[in-house]
Nucleic acid binder design. Structure first.
Lengths: 238, 238
DNA sequence: TAGTGGTCTAGACCACTGA
DNA sequence: CAGTGGTCTAGACCACTAA
């Protein structure tokens, strides 16, 4: 398709990719400064950034806003139909999870959330916003919307722990049937900001609607993942 | 996060987005030439292309290699667990599907395909490569890998039609359980080339492993979608 | 405070598309 | 063959991060 020449985007990509593949740049490691790299490859920063952008969209590297470029760690396998919660899932894959709370409150339900939860117009919902990390890296920004009828007083809990477990222990509510959407798109401003990602970084939006053991819609999660951090694997249980 | 100023990437994005939202640029329509747009916004092509890149990663516009930028039509809803085949699915959503054959042959199975089909090393598989369109737009490049034991002589058929229907009519094989992976990544060279996309354009790779009514793994599809062309919607049937 | 990433300017040449 | 997109050069200034 295109012949190789030095000092081109393609050549820079190949060189960096080779370094990464051979582990010379460790997972999670920071790349040298853009100016250093552009000197190294005898090119301009514009051209270099073009190459970095390609590698980013391939999911080999990622950037943190104003902090630089890093080698992407391996992806997390995620089955949205699975019963296990975030911390358990991440630990099962030999990684270290963590969660931070951004906000939690009762609010008027946005129209799309109303529809997904099957609530009448102008209903109130509980909104919980959090970010999650894997091995310290910010990978996921989530907005949870709960039907308040089923979870009185839930906002008084420690909301950095698993909601799933809280549902079971305090409300005797278990996850049943799940439906979800997956939308490849750029991270919207809120998500990008909380993930310390550049505005418009590639992301994956996963919207889950969860029912309980009795088939009632109990909550809806709107998840924004960094696109290089996850691989969705769906196996329908027998 | 950032204040507005004219002639900036953000301002250009907003202006174009507004035009698109209000339907002044019709779905599938071509944007003016980059030089024209950069004059219009009183900026450089570099800056303009930065803005176009943002809109591309949001899925609002897309480009065809060396042909220009176009407004993205609405996404196709795709349930990989669904039973209906491509043409039926697209028509159900009021769109016009088409399929083109790229190649069809027997070949030694690549290692990953071997593993997914549960075949011993160095097995042969049937490979069928196709592209698919919606309303004339190239959106999907697929590689099908069939277990040759179940489909003798299938390569002699018209391979621009539905494999699913062929399986049923000629081999009495129906789809049963399905498993699939979803990987957000750039389109690899082969996929990009066949979709007339720029190398490294954002894409969505969906790998499906299909079983028949008796639970045997019959084939595996490796699909590369243009990332703005699809929304995955999964509902587990009761 | 030094260095870095984010952004922008003002051009240029080439290869390919489409008329 | 004209116009377009793809690519590259050689700078510049600013806001922010990290020491």
């Amino acid at each position: 398709m295109r012949e190789e020449a030095p000092r081109t985007v393609t050549a820079i990509c190949r060189a960096l990719q080779e370094q990464i593949d051979h582990g010379l740049l460790p997972q999670g490691g920071k790349l040298p400064a853009e100016r250093k790299l552009s000197e190294l490859f005898e090119t301009t920063r514009i051209t270099l950034r073009e190459a970095l952008g390609q590698l980013e969209s391939e999911g080999l590297i990622y950037r943190e806003e104003r902090r630089g470029w890093f080698v992407s760690p391996r992806r997390l396998d995620y089955n949205p139909l699975g019963r296990s919660h975030y911390h358990a899932m991440v630990r099962e894959q030999g990684r270290v999870p963590s969660t931070e709370l951004i906000s939690a409150r009762s609010m008027p339900a946005p129209a799309d959330i109303c529809a997904r939860l099957g609530l009448p117009a102008l209903s109130s919902v509980l909104q919980i916003r959090r970010v999650r990390r894997i091995d310290g890296r910010l990978v996921l920004y989530v907005e949870h919307y709960l039907n308040p009828a089923y979870f009185p007083g839930i906002l008084d809990n420690d909301l950095t722990t698993s909601l799933t477990e809280m549902y079971e222990r305090q409300y005797d509510i278990h996850y049943g049937r799940v439906a979800f959407d997956i939308l490849p798109t750029a991270l919207p401003a809120e998500a990008a900001f909380n993930l310390k990602a550049a505005a418009g970084s590639p992301g994956l939006c996963i919207t889950r609607v969860n029912r309980d053991q009795r088939g009632r819609i109990i909550d809806c999660d709107v998840e924004y993942w960094r696109h290089d951090a996850v691989r969705v694997r769906v196996e329908v249980p027998d």
